[in-house]
Design a protein around this nucleic acid. Structure first.
Lengths: 239, 239
DNA sequence: TGGTAAGATATGTATAGTTGTATAGTAAAT
DNA sequence: ATTTACTATACAACTATACATATCTTACCA
């Protein structure tokens, strides 16, 4: 079920891009469009694909071509059905919202190779896996998975069962303070399971953040990954 | 023994065979794989079976396909540090990659309300709009739009036409140094046009970063938005 | 000054090759 | 009986290349 909203053919996307250029007044009637070769280069496609796109504009009467000369603007569109241009849903999750955490699973298991590497422990070493859901005003905004090395932080599992707050649980387990050593961000598609928990559609864009928190001695105490719903969250970095 | 582990599907065997070819360096990033027909012939199977195998490699991010062109070995994802000093060329050179910028459009126009607010200028004030494509090792990794207030930085447009490097152009225009004042991140879907330029599929997840760079006096000199391809870039935060 | 020829540039046309998608069918495993 | 893995076929979409044809530019010459 992969975005049944229909894929736009390349030639149409090019035609639309040019239509926007016309509508925004980047070209006036009588102006010469870039050559087919230039456009093909700009869009990174074959000249024939550009020709197809231009043909659509000619068909609409927006452009007129002359063999050997070029393509010239005949008219500018009064309205272009490209839909919403650049859309800003800057839905800041600002202050004044009611945060909530919900535990999905909380268990102890062995570390996989990648997890072990991030936490600087041996593959197969025991860890606590805390998988949960973050909500604001009852609306899910992220799911996360936090992993704690049990060799370093015994009793973290029970601590988490009591509080659901990572900071609080780490304090109970003996880690008074911790700092974020690294953060990595990228965008991914929501899997079916993620989509279910986050109440979005499978394939919707998620902002994935992964990072390691270290204790006062520099030893990794938590490896966490969080998937934010792109529509509902904007991360703001202060520098 | 009808051990299921001994019964590898054909498509998987093909994928593994290709994976070995890649791992052993028989193909380098950017190289073209044999055509599906050729592979089908070589392995003595139907083209669809080969396609299934290649699809697995695409899913792993090892290979990229272009309709009508072929299947190409993908470059490994780029780590992109983002902090108070964001410099495209420096970042990628430090990562051992060959950076490149391509100008899509470069013109001067009036600021919209939102843009004016970000740059702390009056709505309708003149600005320079630089829309372009960023590549690493020839592979597109992001598209961006940078806006410069012309009242503060006269001549930036011509400077950009010459160099395409923001840092260099700002230097020519009199801004010796600048730092990033704020960064905001979220995940969005690629539009048809964005997908076209980035050579991804419409709807693929993009990491959108927007931020303001300020000069030494703290005055905004650039308001930029960048859309990174999730598959090809990981932003790393300096702490 | 004006005309003309040559060359570069640009669109139009043709052909073949490659990937993407859809449909239908077959044999084997569950 | 249904599902799974693969085959077979056809067509659509895009690429790659070559060449034909029209236009523009420039140089040259009378």
């Amino acid at each position: 079920m992969r975005d049944s909203s229909g894929k736009t053919p390349i030639w149409k996307a090019i035609a639309d891009a040019l239509r926007i250029d016309l509508a925004e007044g980047r070209y006036s009637p009588g102006d010469k469009l870039p050559t087919e070769a230039a456009l093909a280069d700009r869009f990174g496609v074959n000249r024939h694909t550009v020709r197809h796109g231009i043909a659509a504009l000619v068909d609409d009467g927006l452009v007129r071509t002359r063999r050997g000369a070029g393509a010239y603007v005949a008219a500018t569109p009064t309205d272009y059905p490209i839909g919403s241009r650049v859309r800003f849903h800057e839905n800041l999750i600002a202050a004044g919202r009611r945060p909530e955490k919900r535990i999905l699973t909380l268990d102890e298991r062995a570390a996989t190779e990648g997890e072990a590497k991030a936490l600087q422990i041996a593959t197969g070493a025991p860890l606590c896996a805390y998988h949960g859901l973050s909500l604001a005003d009852g609306q899910p905004i992220a799911i996360f998975e936090s992993l704690f090395p049990l060799d370093r932080i015994a009793g973290i599992t029970d601590a988490l069962r009591g509080t659901s707050s990572v900071t609080e649980a780490l304090r109970v387990a003996g880690i008074a303070d911790y700092t974020r050593a690294s953060t990595r961000l990228t965008a991914v598609r929501a899997t079916a399971t993620q989509a279910l928990h986050l109440q979005v559609t499978e394939g919707d864009p998620l902002l994935r953040s992964s990072g390691v928190n270290t204790g006062q001695l520099g030893q990794p105490v938590e490896y966490g990954r969080t998937w934010f719903v792109g529509d509902r969250v904007t991360l703001t970095l202060e520098t």
